[in-house]
Design a protein around this nucleic acid. Structure first.
Length: 875
DNA sequence: ATGTTCACG
DNA sequence: ACGTACGTGAACATT
């Protein structure tokens, strides 16, 4: 006989959870499916993990329940269910039917009460029960035989509440959760509780007195005048709140445990529902064949070994097919081309010898439409085949239309603008150990579909960009930039391995010593790099007090360790070990591996990735080379000019984001400060602290600087309090004073949020967009995040626009002046060049000039420049 | 594959 | 009451 195990699910709560956790997916018949999909994932996980013998999904019935007769405003003020979710409930019912899972609802009662009643009867029969919900109220049902799982983040992450866990987390028993709600109320259900009592106070009272009743019996003993007053005045309300929060465990249900047995899904029903909903991944997992939504259309691709002028026209879609996504190192296969009539594929070896084709590629007068301009340009540059006249980049265009969609494959970029005819590279080449090149015909076919997609999408996507007034941004900024970035990537940065090795040797020996010291202090060897092992040593063996927890255990992050440093000598050594270990593994060892045969590092700039319009740098990342601490900064000495008697030259914008803020917000004081070329942090300190310039201390300036950062990031008192390590209240006061003295900024912050809510997106000065669907969310966190993003993105994004424009201007200027200087890197607000010494004086003049005039703002842009024998010396 | 930590602007 | 600063990429440990 198998032991019974019953799983009870709170249908409404989980459906809501799934709906808000996932983006609004729509299948091709226009039905939203995110809640159903999320629910399905949850269900599958639960069934797999728990292996129950009995399952039930309980639903809320109707609008009113017995609780409304106690308190008519129960669950009042709730937003009504979004229609996008409502329309999914019938599918959820169908889904459960297909799973053969019983569903139950009861007039006048909530799902909670059904679950409560069943879990009580199960408990009485000592049947193991698991309750699953997104609502923490249910934790009151936890007993030795009933476990309550509450969804945490996302859809599959659950927090498991046993009586022991509740005790550990809150210091009270499961049933006292009800008392807690009675005292603190519950905003989401509109349960009032006692004003001024939140979780902290409620728990303190309950730990001392045990229940709401005992709290009131002991009123006299309670300290705190205000608290006592609030309790006294709201006694009835507290009792009522407790009643409302109590789950009914004796609901008049008409089902019993026997009715809930679960024997697995009806596969046939399930597949047909999945097909209807287009849950292809789920279908594949079930091993159902032939369900790929549409079979990819087979196009006729002609493999050509030699082209004639007649094969080529003024406008063509071209796509360079290759094995890996790193076009700088990948094996290249060949070029697919089409002008809408025939589709060719030219294998690489033929391309290399085909002068007709090479001439066409180099001709700026023939237009090339492609999937990734930079890849085409840089990959062919590496084999000395110049390309010019690239006029359309599908990935870049799709990114400008909506940067929130991430494309790690052309098929996804194409799909985002409505073209589903491309297979994923992964499907053609396989992945991991199984990755291999298929037959040439298959490669040609795959490459051909990409060229065809580009050809067919060119017009519509361009039109879409024009409609959004983003064509300029795309065509005159991003597209030319792609080529410039391609040049920079191909050029690469000369990196001196010997310098890295010298630093590395010293680091190794220091790390060894630190390791010995740490083991001695700990009394045993352990893996210092393992947060888990480190946590055990610090907080269990040594007995330090944990300050912060992570999901998986004790936090050992630097800010935590710094606070612990006075407690034990070992901490400073660990911090140093971490710092040096990072330098050794990421920078010394990591960078050494990336030096190519030409002695250079060729990073790649991702141009269609960030949400704000910034670039990012990968393989390796050259945008995060250490600078803040001297030890790390030395790494920069390894980056040197690639030619004898050349120098490194660096130029960076001073306070570009705050200048952009001054311009966008039109705050008079901020504008004046920049026009007068004042130190903006000092100026901020003067205003926030109400002192004269002479009275500003370095601490005041530091605080002001943090406030300015906060403003740019979309401020929150909590964030500022963390960065300054001050109480939250103080941080809030700083912010208020700041906003009062810079009213234009305040106005901007308020307006941008309203604007974002209304339009659904925010934009930069050059019309780069970022959509913010969460800005209207009822979830406090999501909404808060979206609001801060709304404040930050126009600033960070406009700064990104500006430097991109500067790079284009700079490239032209270097060309026009006939200079040999080369642009090598962009690090968000700075540009790094190498140049012959003789060009230094010219660069000192030209570079700041070009950067400062990239875009005209109502405040001046300011650029500082420096040069030296290595990147380290450009300071 | 995911989480934690830490490097940069 | 909620749980946070904005934007990235890489290494390492752990699942």
């Amino acid at each position: 006989m198998t032991t019974k195990k019953i799983v009870l699910l709170d249908g409404n709560s989980l459906a809501y959870r799934a709906f808000f956790a996932l983006p609004l997916l729509t299948n091709d018949s226009g039905i939203h499916t995110n809640a159903v999909y999320g629910f399905t994932m949850m269900l599958q996980n639960i069934l797999k993990e728990e292996q129950p013998t009995h399952v039930l999904v309980a639903w809320d019935a109707g609008k009113t329940t017995f609780r409304h007769s106690t308190f008519s405003e129960y669950k009042g003020g709730r937003q009504k269910t979004p229609p996008e979710l409502s329309e999914q409930f019938p599918y959820l019912r169908k889904l459960l039917k297909a799973f053969n899972i019983p569903q139950y609802e009861l007039e006048n009662f909530e799902a909670d009460d059904i679950i409560g009643t069943l879990s009580r009867t199960a408990s009485e029969e000592a049947v193991k029960t698991v309750v699953i919900s997104g609502d923490k109220d249910l934790t009151q049902l936890a007993t030795d035989s009933t476990t309550v799982c509450i969804t945490r983040k996302g859809i599959t992450d659950m927090e498991i509440y046993t009586p022991a866990h509740i005790e550990e987390k809150y210091g009270i028993g499961p049933l006292q959760i009800i008392d807690m709600k009675g005292l603190m109320g519950d905003a989401s259900d509109n349960i009032p509780g006692v004003p001024g009592v939140g979780e902290k106070t409620a728990l303190k009272l309950l730990k001392e007195y045990g229940s709401v009743e005992h709290v009131y019996e002991s009123l006299d003993a309670i300290s705190g005048k205000k608290l006592k007053e609030n309790l006294t005045n709201n006694e009835e309300q507290a009792y009522m709140s407790k009643r409302l929060a109590t789950i009914e465990v004796n609901a008049p249900i008409t089902i019993s445990l026997q009715d809930l047995s679960y024997d697995g899904p009806d596969e046939e029903q399930l597949t047909s529902l999945y097909k209807e909903l287009k849950f292809t991944t789920l279908l594949e997992k079930m091993g159902v064949e032939g369900v790929e939504s549409e079979p990819v259309e087979v196009i006729e691709v002609e493999t050509k070994h030699k082209l004639t002028a007649a094969d080529l026209s003024d406008q063509m879609a071209v796509h360079l097919e290759m094995m890996d996504d790193n076009y700088l190192t990948s094996e290249l296969f060949g070029l697919a081309m089409t002008n809408g009539e025939r589709v060719f594929y030219v294998p690489l070896d033929d391309l290399k010898q085909d002068d007709v084709l090479k001439k066409w590629l180099a001709d700026p007068g023939t237009k090339k439409f492609t999937t990734d301009a930079k890849a085409l340009f840089a990959a062919l540059a590496a084999i000395d085949i110049p390309v010019s006249g690239i006029d359309f980049d599908l990935t870049l265009a799709a990114y400008i239309v909506n940067p929130s969609l991430s494309f790690d494959d052309v098929s996804e970029a194409a799909a985002s603008v409505g073209w589903n005819g491309i297979q994923k590279d992964e499907k053609v080449y396989g992945k991991g150990a199984k990755k291999a090149a298929p037959a040439i015909e298959e490669i040609a076919q795959h490459a051909g579909t990409k060229a065809v997609a580009v050809w067919n999408l060119f017009e519509t996507v361009s039109e879409k960009l024009r409609q959004n007034e983003q064509y300029e941004l795309y065509h005159n900024l991003e597209l030319p930039l792609a080529i410039i970035l391609g040049k920079m990537e191909s050029t690469g940065v000369k990196t001196d391995l010997a310098t890295l090795q010298t630093i590395g040797t010293e680091l190794s020996s220091r790390l060894e010593h630190l390791e010995t010291t740490i083991y001695e202090l700990a009394g045993q060897p352990f893996n210092i790099n393992s947060p888990k092992q480190l946590g055990v040593i610090l907080f269990e063996k040594i007995g330090l007090t944990p300050i912060k927890k992570t999901k998986t255990g004790y936090s050992t992050a630097a800010d935590v360790l710094e606070k612990l440093a006075p407690e034990h000598e070992i901490i400073e050594h660990i911090l140093l070990f971490r710092q040096l270990g990072k330098l050794k593994s990421t920078y010394i060892d990591g960078l050494s591996k990336e030096i190519h045969e030409d002695g250079k590092i060729h990073t790649r700039f991702q141009q269609a990735l960030t949400q704000t319009g910034r670039l990012s740098s990968i393989n390796p990342n050259l945008q995060n080379i250490p600078i803040r601490l001297e030890e790390g900064r030395k790494i920069r000495a390894a980056f040197v000019p690639s030619e004898p008697n050349w120098i490194m030259f660096a130029a960076d914008y001073s306070q570009i984001e705050l200048r952009v803020l001054a311009h966008i917000s039109q705050d008079k004081k901020l504008i004046d400060a920049f026009r007068a070329d004042e130190d903006v942090h000092t100026k901020t300190a003067m205003d926030v602290f109400g002192v004269t310039k002479e009275e500003v201390t370095s601490n005041m300036r530091r605080a002001a600087k943090a406030v300015n950062f906060g403003i740019v990031y979309g401020i929150s008192d909590y964030g500022l309090s963390q960065s300054l390590d001050i109480p939250r209240k103080e941080a809030a006061e700083f912010i208020d004073t700041y906003l009062a003295s810079f009213p234009g900024v305040k106005q901007y912050m308020d307006t941008i949020i309203v604007d974002a809510k209304q339009r659904g997106f925010v934009s930069t000065m050059m019309n780069r967009r970022r959509y913010l669907p969460d800005i209207t969310s009822s979830n406090f966190n999501l909404r808060g995040f979206a609001e801060r993003t709304a404040m930050n993105t126009p600033i960070q994004g406009t700064a990104a626009d500006i430097i991109k424009k500067a790079m284009i201007d700079m490239d032209r200027r270097l060309e026009a002046e006939g200079l040999q200087a080369r642009m090598l890197l962009q690090v968000h607000d700075e540009l790094i060049f190498e140049a012959p010494e003789e060009e230094l004086e010219q660069l000192k003049k030209i570079v700041p000039e070009v950067m400062e005039s990239a875009l005209e703002l109502d405040v001046p842009l300011k650029v500082d420049s420096a040069y030296g024998a290595s990147w380290y010396d450009t300071k």
